[in-house]
């Protein structure tokens, strides 16, 4: 019996070249760990073999990123030639660490982005800053400020100031169960809350929990009475 590790099976299954469709054209990502020979073979099959007709058609912008691989000038030239042979390919970028690749990862966001959970009320005068995304279990009161380099989710009333993507990430979002912020900031944009004819939206988030006499539903602000160990962690 052979046991294959997850790692092995992955490299076996994944082709040495992956193709991503981007807004401007096609991005070819060459596996930087695969041997040069495999890459050339794979590309030849792809671009000149049976499947080559897939890539025929109107002109298309092509971006090739071969990653941080060790290769000679000849090897690189060999790969480039394969792309130049296709009539309808317009090679826009060819190299490692291309902007096309960076854009790709920027849009998809790295999965390992840090996230935090803040339990408690962000009170007037408190300023909290988080790296990555943050979930606030509690309210952000008027005069309180919460900032994160990523997204902000408030499971309570957002009535203070929230600044998502505070280091310039314009993709960041701000969410709240009750949305009545004093001011909103995303990256370098500043805005005030959408006004709902003067009155804030009346919604309350609730949570269910078990008691001796059965199930109970209460406002989320009382979650600490069920989980005393959650009683706020004051910010330093």
């Amino acid at each position: 019996m052979t046991v294959r590790t997850a790692d092995q099976s992955q490299t076996d299954m994944r082709p040495p070249v992956s193709i991503k469709g981007t807004k401007g054209g096609l991005l070819f990502l060459l596996d930087e760990k695969a041997p040069h020979k495999d890459i050339v073979e794979h590309l030849q099959r792809l671009l000149c073999g049976d499947l080559a007709s897939l890539f025929n058609g109107p002109e298309v912008a092509v971006y090739v990123d071969y990653g941080a691989r060790d290769c000679s000038r000849e090897e690189i030239r060999e790969i480039l030639h394969l792309f130049l042979e296709k009539d309808n390919f317009r090679v826009r970028e060819f190299g490692q660490d291309t902007t096309a690749r960076k854009m790709m990862f920027h849009n998809h966001r790295e999965p390992g982005r840090p996230h935090s959970i803040y339990r408690g009320t962000v009170r007037a005068g408190q300023q909290l800053l988080f790296d990555g995304d943050v979930v606030v279990i509690g309210d952000v009161n008027p005069g309180g400020e919460i900032a994160a380099t990523g997204d902000i989710y408030v499971l309570g009333r957002l009535r203070g100031l929230a600044h998502a993507g505070c280091q310039g990430d314009e993709q960041a979002i701000i969410a709240a169960a009750e949305f009545a912020p004093m001011q909103l900031r995303i990256a370098n944009w500043v805005s005030r809350a959408p006004e709902t004819d003067g009155r804030p939206l009346r919604t309350t988030m609730e949570f269910a929990y078990l008691r001796e006499d059965g199930m109970a539903v209460d406002k989320l602000m009382y979650v600490q009475s069920v989980r005393p160990e959650w009683a706020f962690h004051p910010a330093e």
């Binding site: 408690g120 009320t121 009170r123 007037a124 005068g125 408190q126 009161n141 008027p142 005069g143 309180g144 009683a231 706020f232 004051p234 910010a235």
Partner: peptide, 18 residues
């Protein structure tokens, strides 16, 4: 109320919990 909120924050920070 705003000042009370600020003060509660400071009290909690100094360990006066509830």
């Amino acid at each position: 109320v705003r000042d009370a909120d600020r003060v509660i924050g400071l009290l909690e920070k100094s360990g006066l919990r509830s």
